[in-house]
Design a protein around this nucleic acid. Structure first.
Ligand SMILES: [Mn+2]
Ligand SMILES: [Mn+2]
Ligand SMILES: [Zn+2]
Ligand SMILES: [Zn+2]
Lengths: 136, 136
DNA sequence: TATTATATGCAATCTAATTGCAAATGAGAA
DNA sequence: TTCTCATTTGCAATTAGATTGCATATAATA
């Protein structure tokens, strides 16, 4: 974990608390996205509502983005630098049908299709389902 | 509504009932996808559980597919002929941030990105957010 | 150290989805 | 046409995840 959670919070003008540091560290450590339940599991003493509101805050401050995959619970993942300013660096997400983990494929920008007359796009979300390298 | 609901059910080996005919007709008439709540609204006498199980059945029989857009409720839409056999004819979906309607863009097949080593894709789901032609 | 806006914990609520079960019904057999 | 039985339906109850209210605790800064 090269990046310092505390540092990151300060940069984003997010008030530093124990909860927030630990929740942010969970994301910095993880190679895949996390649901509220995932975080509850790794931080059993933490309160669900607090986790929820922390994730809300992180999302508002463009520290996290959300992913709706085939699972019931919403997943959260760190924003890359490119995410931060505007959402023009769009990356796909890969959801493994076996282990159910969802990965940000930040390296794999994708081309966007044309649209019907008078439809204007502002954002894209591509979810790829399949089997991840760990589950082959 | 050129296509006959009853006919369609028979072709798919789905037992014909009043509920199913009317629910299927809702989809045949609609230019955008529908949630359970949408159907409850247009068929006020119908039971939520019945609608739910009907949609399950329709999905299993490849009459409908589902779409997770930014709204809370899951949306359902008719499968095109191409959907039916295998899911290789992938089309994007457009979700309007104003009216909240979600359209199947069956005309607009999209290119798929490369994947990391040892990741195998089996399905793709692209949701485009923006403003639809009605809301411009 | 005092002040104050903000974050937290806990319980309650909300929403959409999902299930159990007994009664009703569709489709094929007789 | 009527009978039979697997399937579907309606209703009520439950689940799962997200979200909120409110009193208390705490971080930031003066
Ligand atoms: Mn991502
Ligand atoms: Mn579609
Ligand atoms: Zn996997
Ligand atoms: Zn619209």
């Amino acid at each position: 974990m090269k990046i310092n959670a505390q540092q990151l919070l300060k940069e984003k003008n997010i008030r530093i608390t124990a909860n927030r540091i630990l929740i942010l560290e969970s994301f910095l450590k993880s190679s895949y996205s996390l649901s509220i339940a995932d975080i509850e599991e790794s931080l059993p003493w933490a309160d669900r509502a607090t986790i929820f509101r922390t994730l809300m805050t992180f999302k508002e401050k463009a520290l996290l983005h959300t992913i709706k995959d085939d699972d019931k619970a919403l997943k959260y993942a760190l924003c890359s630098d490119a995410c931060q300013v505007n959402h023009h660096h769009i990356h796909p997400h890969f959801h493994c049908d076996i282990c159910s983990k969802t990965y940000c494929l930040t390296q794999y920008e994708f081309p966007t299709p044309d649209l019907p007359e008078n439809f204007k796009a502002s954002n894209y979300s591509l979810i790829i389902n399949g089997i991840c390298s760990n589950c082959q």
